[in-house]
Write a protein that binds this DNA or RNA. Structure first.
Lengths: 347, 347
DNA sequence: CCCTGGCACTCGGAAAGCCGGAGTGCTAAG
DNA sequence: CTTAGCACTCCGGCTTTCCGAGTGCCAGGG
């Protein structure tokens, strides 16, 4: 870790803040004026020279001002940034969203929209991979003589449904009974485990299985084999906000970025990393390790249900973003979401 | 309607096809070469001059070639275009999607992705506004003593669920009974009508209502009052495909367009229009009436369930798109979707 | 020793000028 | 009516010029 004189730190902070605000390389003169520094441009130039040696800033070319490097941003967020609570205006618009009492599921999905609206960047939310969550119960509901609605409820309150066409008609009471037997047999496992058990049970095809359980297993298998189970558990919104940033508006990069949003693969991996530790995490530029996120930063924070981390919320924007604002927004959103989910479930 | 000499029509067709393929203004010389015309560039210039007077083509500037106007595209699709069935390759990739037996709901949502993949443009799907579809049945499922999962099934196979927290605990049989009574009372109405009835029933608060129905009405009301009911019934995918087109890559237009995709309002109105009549509809450029879709065309086709139009599939791309290909893809997709939905439901 | 004013230097970006090419419109001849 | 020829236009790309912003360095002053 580099150590700078207090003056150099002050300067760097002012420079980065200025650059975040304006998006233009900032020169010694403007920096003196803007930050109200008590020394001259020449001095500033000397200090800048040092900062450049440390790799914290660089000049795009000889006679432009300086812009922060990724390392500069990193130093900035690590040691120069005092994260304040969100502006009251932001705060209220976030809280409003959580006041409306909704389904956990709907709430989670809406959070990405919330984040994008408040930060004017792209909001992302990663929900638990379906296969990983706990199985709570299954129910069969006859829609007609040939169609049965299978409802799968997970322990975290997600509901999955699918219509299947069983081989023979079942009466309502048969279905009821089948569900009861099934729930008894598979209570407490994770969805992935249930799926595995189902495959086993079908393969064994044992005669000793109750007839009714057999039916249930066959029908349930159709749900657990469905692609809904392996769906990428990621919501993105407000991608179009990123079009407003000139540093991203140039064709190829933008293209890559948007494809990353659609493919979701990379983002998912990134958010997985962020789930291992608590609190806000920040990936600046290449730190994320994904080419598509080259000149972007990602700010994430995990949220939890009953003390257990289950997902992540976050924001994607250009490296030149208002880290203090974004960090506080992401942080408070994750907290409120955790609260809303943990509050809503027990009781 | 303008009437052109066969030669002029041939020329126009060749010009538009060339322009769609290359995206560059096309001049007399290249046109002669490319289309293998048996007359000279000078003649072509004369004819082009006529076409320009008719407003079918225009030159971006004096010494560029000609590009089609919106009117030109319109004439092209109306009278010059022979819509062929999709290329076999497209066809198989479409059919593959429909082979996988899925939920109607999942199928519908996946179609926008399908369209965008096949056409390399943005795919859109409009599903019935929730409030308009017919009510089929409601069910209550106890998750815990304080949480009840309400499952709402519509006649077209959509399933809506929501967790509510009733005032007092209900036993499974009470819930069962409540659902039965409720289903009997509201069978056959549209969701909007059900909602209205519920509000009425709650307002009247009449003593003569069965106790169990009262409970059902109260719980159901929480579902019908939820925002899921009024959700914009529109799916968009593959927006990022549009970044590949140079004519759209210029900042502000693109921005508008993407905002239209997020806001959904305009697209929804447009698709509403397309639902009134059968078959493929094409909105070229300003024809749609929405500024955001300025240099875009929209190709749509309604799909039906049991002979009733219930939604629309479509594609959004630059006015310079391969209309023949896109039209046939949209058409066949709508047909297959109708087939899959109508096939799956009865039985 | 550090700060500061001064100065020469560099470089990018805008403006201006200069082709070359592609394409047109017109005209006159076949 | 078609076509070859020709003059003309205008865009795009290229170079040139110029200006301004900003730097680095140096020498003088606190």
């Amino acid at each position: 870790m580099v150590s700078l004189t207090p003056r150099a730190e002050r300067l760097l902070k002012a420079l980065i803040e200025q650059y975040i605000a304006e998006g233009q390389p900032v020169g010694s003169r403007t920096l003196v004026k803007q930050a109200g520094l008590e020394f001259s441009p020449a001095t500033v130039r000397n200090i800048m020279s040092d900062l450049e040696e440390f790799g914290l800033i660089r000049s795009p070319h000889t006679s432009a001002g300086r812009v922060p490097t990724e390392r500069g941003y990193r130093f900035f967020v690590n040691t120069l940034l005092a994260v304040k609570p969100p502006k009251t205006w932001d705060m209220t618009s976030i809280e409003d969203r959580f006041l409306a009492d909704q389904d956990p599921q709907q709430l989670i999905e809406s959070v990405s929209g919330l984040l994008s609206q408040v930060t004017k960047l792209a909001g992302i939310v990663r929900v638990p991979r379906r296969a990983d969550v706990g199985f709570l119960q299954l129910d069969f509901l006859a829609l007609s003589s040939t169609r049965v609605l299978v409802i799968l409820v997970t322990q975290d309150g997600q509901v999955l449904n699918r219509v299947i066409h069983p081989k023979r008609p079942y009466s309502a009471s048969e279905l009821q009974q089948a569900a009861n037997v099934f729930n008894g047999a598979y209570a407490g496992l994770s969805l992935a485990e249930v799926r595995r058990s189902l495959v086993d049970a079908l393969r064994r095809d044992s005669e000793d299985m109750q007839q009714i359980l057999r039916s249930a297993v066959e029908m349930a298998h159709q749900v657990f084999a469905g692609e809904a189970m392996s769906e990428a558990p990621l919501f993105v919104s407000g991608e179009s906000n990123l079009l407003a940033f000139p540093e991203l508006s140039n064709t190829e990069k933008l293209r890559r970025l948007f494809e990353a949003f659609t493919a979701k693969q990379d983002l998912l991996h990134l958010l997985d990393q962020s789930m291992v530790s608590q609190g806000v995490q920040i990936f600046i530029g290449a730190e994320s390790g994904y080419e598509a996120l080259e000149s972007c930063s990602v700010v994430t924070a995990p949220y939890e249900v009953d003390g257990q981390i289950v997902g992540t919320v976050g924001v994607v924007g250009p490296t030149r973003m208002s880290y203090d604002r974004v960090i506080s927004v992401v942080d408070v959103t994750a907290r409120l979401l955790s609260g809303a989910l943990s509050h809503g479930l027990p009781g």
